[in-house]
């Protein structure tokens, strides 16, 4: 078993659209149902976090730029950590992720343990 980071990316503009409380609740339930499904398989390592759309980038020579990162089109919206035998199983676990319903992507990366 290895740990895999699932990174959710989607269009920044899209994630900033206003939602009604009901829509927000429904979206939360959809995410919770998907994560709950992974947890029910005992494959969830960490429920991760959501990230605020705005941010800053610090580059060499202390050059600071502000987000949102329109130039890269798809920004990181959040992540979770799962465990799986291999990258294929981790990819299968990613199926059904709600980000896919709004045209986003899930990036699956194996975590290399630091010993």
């Amino acid at each position: 078993m290895n740990d895999f980071l699932l990174v959710f990316r989607n269009d920044v503009a899209l994630s900033q659209t206003q939602m009604s409380p009901d829509q927000m609740q429904a979206l939360m339930s959809t995410w919770q149902n998907w994560i709950g499904g992974i947890a029910a398989q005992n494959k969830l390592v960490s429920p991760g976090n959501r990230l605020a759309p705005a941010g800053k980038v610090l580059a060499t020579n202390n050059v600071i730029t502000d987000g949102p990162f329109v130039e890269i089109k798809e920004a990181i919206g959040g992540y979770i950590i799962v465990k799986a035998e291999n990258i294929d199983e981790a990819t299968t676990l990613s199926e059904g992720c709600p980000i896919l319903h709004v045209g986003g992507t899930v990036e699956i990366r194996m975590i290399i343990p630091m010993n």
Partner: peptide, 23 residues
């Protein structure tokens, strides 16, 4: 709906086979 969401949370905090089946 409420029970499902509660099981979703419970499994994230503390997995057990019986909670997985109940969910």
């Amino acid at each position: 709906e409420n029970i499902l969401q509660l099981y979703n949370k419970l499994l994230q905090v503390n997995y057990s086979p019986i909670a997985a089946l109940n969910r």
